[in-house]
């Protein structure tokens, strides 16, 4: 009795299998190696400053004192504000493209929005410095502070420099918009036809169908897309570095300059001369790595859940 479960592989087949498996394995190995190396480089800083690295608010290179709280604060605030600005627009585009757009408009608009993702970060930064900053400084900031009278609130107080948390958030919002809208569009398109038709058959208007039948079905995928956008915003470096003002101070005002984890690395790493400065910057990278890793895992899990249910 012959019994067999796997194909008797020739040696060429075995080599093919070994090589492709090695390629696949290289991805988790690389990820682990990257994390290990970043933590090894960051270790002196964690060892010396301990938890106060995360909570300390003084970043003084000359004095050798490194507390990353202003960067963590700047990273979180600029990213969250960017999400607040980008999400409604991104969802609007996604719903427009998946539900409302006439076919002739769908392709070009989708292409233009996707193109936003293709523009290099440094070009956003360049545009931000010479176009966005003047507009913010001369028009938007005075409008918010004086015309709307928000100048007395801590959020919009202080002189309008231009280089600021607000500028970074606006450019981040533009940059993450295509990511959020692409994922949202994908999950909205994955909503089964029957789901829509059932709502329409009940006499719902198009908007009611979207609100009551389509969006709830795609909800966790849309949230996944938003979190994916958050991951992008947290790690975005160049445009932010060029616009945020690069000052390691905690300030409630969005008009004030700030710093992010990514931008402090970009700005200071090449010139870091002491071991602890380098290690502190590596530690900023390590914090960023852990946070984006977690954010991405959550997002992928949420998006994947919709894709699985949709099948």
């Amino acid at each position: 009795m012959g019994s067999t479960s796997i194909e008797g592989a020739s040696s060429a087949d075995r080599w093919y299998r070994i090589i492709t498996t090695a390629c696949a394995l290289s991805i988790p190995l690389l990820l682990g190696f990257i994390a290990l190396q970043v933590f090894v480089g960051a270790w002196p800083a964690f060892e010396k400053f301990g938890l106060s690295f995360l909570t300390g608010s003084t970043w003084d290179v000359g004095a050798g004192e490194f507390g990353a709280a202003p960067m963590i604060y700047g990273t979180v605030v600029s990213s969250v504000l960017a999400l607040v600005l980008a999400t409604p627009l991104a969802l609007g585009v996604a719903i427009f493209l998946s539900e409302f757009a006439p076919p002739w408009l769908r392709q070009p608009v989708a292409f233009l929005v996707d193109l936003l993702a293709a523009i290099p970060s440094v070009v956003y930064g360049l545009w931000g410095i010479f176009v966005l900053l003047p507009v913010l400084r001369e028009d938007v900031m005075p409008f918010l502070a004086t015309t709307l009278g928000l100048g007395n609130t801590p959020l919009f107080s202080g002189p309008a420099y231009g280089n600021s948390m607000l500028a970074a958030s606006v450019i981040l919002a533009i940059m993450i918009l295509p990511y959020i809208s692409a994922v949202a569009r994908e999950v909205l398109m994955a909503v089964p036809r029957a789901q829509r038709e059932a709502a329409l058959a009940l006499g719902a208007t198009r908007w009611e169908m979207i609100r009551d039948a389509v969006v709830p079905y795609a909800r966790s995928g849309i949230i996944g897309g938003i979190i994916l956008g958050l991951g992008r915003a947290l790690g975005e470096t160049m445009a932010v570095t060029m616009l945020i003002g690069n000052r390691a101070e905690l300030s409630a005002s969005l008009f004030a300059p700030g710093y992010t984890l990514a931008s402090v690395i970009a700005n200071e790493f090449a010139e870091a001369s002491t071991e602890f400065h380098t290690a502190a910057l590596m530690a900023c990278g390590a914090v960023l790595l852990v946070v984006t890793l977690m954010v991405n895992m959550i997002a992928r899990w949420l998006v994947g859940r919709v894709a699985r249910e949709g099948r």
Binding site: M1, G2, S3, T4
Partner: peptide
């Protein structure tokens, strides 16, 4: 997977080798 024999012109195609 399979169990049993399939003979092609008298040779078991599932034989070892």
């Amino acid at each position: 997977r399979t169990e049993g024999e399939v003979m092609l012109d008298g040779d078991d195609i599932y034989a070892r080798g």
